[in-house]
């Protein structure tokens, strides 16, 4: 029953994302506008760009993940679907929250991972570091979705959520940014990135276990 309900929600979310194709592409378009603006801002020198590439790609991915957060739970709150998660009784609300966060990651995180090689090429990231970049994005972007979902749930009851959202997300993603860019930088300089990636995975495990609990509690308070 629970699994059926979760699959149904996932299919609905993905179908909605496909129908709103333009909106779903926003994170990717945003990512590439940052990647294109950086060389225009700091100059086209390949050495400089290669050294800032890990940080720039990660910061762009981080900001891109913020874009869709405002709409993560709000439409469902407004049309009453969110309340049905609690009163419907077909599945535990926590399971539905996890499903929603997973679909958010599929729509905003996965495209960024898939297009990371192109962004890396545009910023002259050494090709040895590319697998590490993609691996760090694969481990790190789910954390961005989980943390962003929490911030989105916390600000759900407010009218001016979007400004608050970035203030709440920023402290929570500091460790992700440090370890992810640390991994890519280490790989680009020819060192092993395993320590950084290990710590990043630890962050992912922590976020997967704790963030949905807090998100569910926050949503529950906001629909009261």
């Amino acid at each position: 029953m629970t699994v059926a309900r979760m699959t149904a929600l996932l299919r609905r979310d993905l179908r909605l994302a496909l129908r709103h194709g333009g909106e779903s592409l926003m994170p990717l378009i945003f990512l590439f506008s940052v990647i294109i603006l950086v060389p225009l801002g700091v100059g086209p020198g390949p050495n400089l760009l290669a050294s800032i590439a890990p940080g720039m790609i990660w910061v762009a991915a981080l900001l891109a993940s913020l874009l869709a957060l405002e709409q993560l739970f709000r439409p469902d709150l407004e049309d009453g679907t969110l309340e049905q998660w609690w009163v419907g009784g077909t599945a535990p609300p926590g399971a539905l929250v996890v499903t929603r966060l997973f679909s958010h990651w599929l729509v905003t995180g996965v495209p960024v991972i898939l297009f990371a090689p192109l962004a890396a090429q545009m910023l002259y990231l050494p090709s040895d570091a590319l697998p590490t970049l993609m691996l760090s994005l694969l481990i790190g972007t789910p954390v961005l979705s989980l943390v962003g979902g929490l911030a989105s749930a916390l600000t759900l009851g407010t009218n001016r959520g979007s400004v608050l959202l970035s203030i709440l997300v920023f402290p929570m993603v500091v460790p992700v940014l440090i370890f992810a860019t640390g991994a890519v930088t280490a790989a680009a300089e020819g060192f092993s990135a395993r320590a950084h990636l290990g710590l990043l995975t630890a962050l992912l495990i922590l976020a997967v276990t704790l963030a949905p609990l807090a998100t569910t509690a926050a949503l529950r308070l906001n629909i009261e």
């Binding site: 009851g157 407010t158 203030i167 709440l168 308070l221 906001n222 009261e224």
Partner: peptide
């Protein structure tokens, strides 16, 4: 900021407590 953004201050306090 989160506490200040809610109109219902009790709700705001409880949500901010989670944060």
């Amino acid at each position: 900021g989160l506490y200040a953004a809610f109109e219902d201050r009790r709700k705001g306090a409880r949500v901010a407590c989670i944060l």
